[in-house]
Write a protein that binds this DNA or RNA. Structure first.
Lengths: 203, 203
DNA sequence: TTGCCTACTAAACAATGTTTAGTAACTTTG
DNA sequence: CAAAGTTACTAAACATTGTTTAGTAGGCAA
């Protein structure tokens, strides 16, 4: 069965080659510059070959989205080491915003792009995202348990904080902050983050 | 010069006819269902004719975006009548979120779509949006002036509240709330809005 | 060695944005 | 009013991009 094994390995390698090309093109040319022909050209195969390894463009897209979710998780990992739940929550939030501002393309792909959620495919990515989200909610729960808040509505607290962070990053990523001079934007984001922390203290 | 006037009027009517068709198609079939040929078919002209009235698809798109901005402004108008700045601010926020949840397509077009901001065209829409935004910031300023907050950093307060509302609507519009059962989502949004109001009280 | 099967591709198809070249009706001019 | 010019419109084509089809060449099995 060695031949079959080799073939399977080669198949996996080819999928990985395609995805890696897609990854590079996405990083260089963004969402709009990513098309099947450009991937094919980069790996020096015909466009039709791509379809032997991925059902359609969306499947490649989902795979990329998974990479974004993994990158986000990796970015947030350092927060997990912090003992104190309140400090952990703050650092988690800070890293979340930091990820969005440093990797707007990835954030866009995860949260602002139309295509991905339409069909409930892309299970792995959703699962990974949910794990990260659960870690966040658990940290809020730990804060609630330790009486860091007066409120005990973990769900609403978590959701409210998420809304703020997500809104902050989204306005950045989609360039809806034109009313503020470019050099002020990051500072405003930092101030706003500090403000929501202060506000949360009074919860 | 009557003929020239008539021609100008006819030109404006045609532009309006095209835009109205685009509007209907957008409402029925959404962003992806809106294309030049479908507009042409609806108004019973050839696709090429569209290009005699709009430079390209983006220009139609920008015009639609302006409609969305106008719809948003109209939706928020009732808040302006409220005397007390704090109550006005709350109502403004409530109506903002309400608009987003009731007209996800419009909100999407205004804040979540990639195309519009790329070139700094679409001046009128931006101007209209800025006017609405200024009204919001002025209301926050009025609250600051009336000592509703301990903080006096109007800009950061306004931005923080906007981040929350925008994040809340965005997560809805782009369906990133799958972890909550559908029937819980609106309630969670309402609770979160109430929570941010409470949090703002302590600012 | 023969026949099958796999990986791959050229070419085509379909959808959609956009341009070109031409036509018919309307308007101006002499 | 007739000739010339202009305008409004269109059919057809072109370009791009996702996707499918019909094959082909080379490895693999019998």
């Amino acid at each position: 069965m060695s031949i079959a094994e080799r073939k399977e390995r080669e198949k996996a390698e080819m999928r990985s080659l395609i995805l890696s090309a897609a990854h590079h093109i996405f990083k260089e040319k963004g969402y709009d510059g990513l098309n099947i022909r450009s991937i094919a050209e980069r790996i020096e195969y015909s466009p039709a070959t791509i379809y032997l390894y991925y059902k359609d463009k969306n499947e490649i897209f989902y795979a990329l989205q998974y990479e974004a979710a993994a990158a986000k998780r990796d970015h947030l990992i350092p927060a997990a080491a912090i003992e104190d739940p309140w400090q952990r929550l703050i650092e988690f939030g800070r890293l979340y915003v930091d990820f969005g501002l440093k990797h707007p393309d990835w954030y866009d792909l995860l949260f602002l792009t139309r295509a991905p959620m339409e069909h409930v495919e892309n299970q792995e990515c959703w699962t990974l995202g949910m794990a990260t989200h659960s870690f966040f909610v658990e940290t809020v729960q730990a804060c609630v348990d330790a009486r860091y808040f007066k409120s005990t509505d973990t769900q609403t607290i978590a959701y409210t904080l998420w809304c703020h962070a997500h809104g902050l990053v989204s306005l950045f990523v989609r360039e809806r902050m034109r009313m503020y001079p470019p050099e002020q934007r990051e500072e405003l984001a930092r101030k706003s983050f500090a403000m929501i922390v202060k506000m949360a203290e009074g919860l």
